[in-house]
Amino acid sequence: MGLDIRLPIGFLFSIFGVLLIAFGALSDKAIYERSLGININLEWGVVMLLFGAVMLFLGRRGTKV
């Protein structure tokens, strides 16, 4: 119906990915004590950005699924 759902999903996940990466890069490392010392914002932000980019690519190509 007019709008390929992968475009909004890709857009949202890309925004969240960028936000998490930016915050992960700028934040104090002490806050990651609770996530077992892993900068989970940076790592998960990259995963979300990649997923968002793939969805945007598929949505823009109009790949049949």
């Binding site: 969240f16 915050f23 992960g24 806050i31 996530s35 989970i40 998960w44």
Partner: peptide
């Protein structure tokens, strides 16, 4: 609350 720091906690 136990595992997520600010940022991913919002997610």
């Amino acid at each position: 609350l136990h595992y997520f720091p600010t940022g991913i906690l919002g997610l």
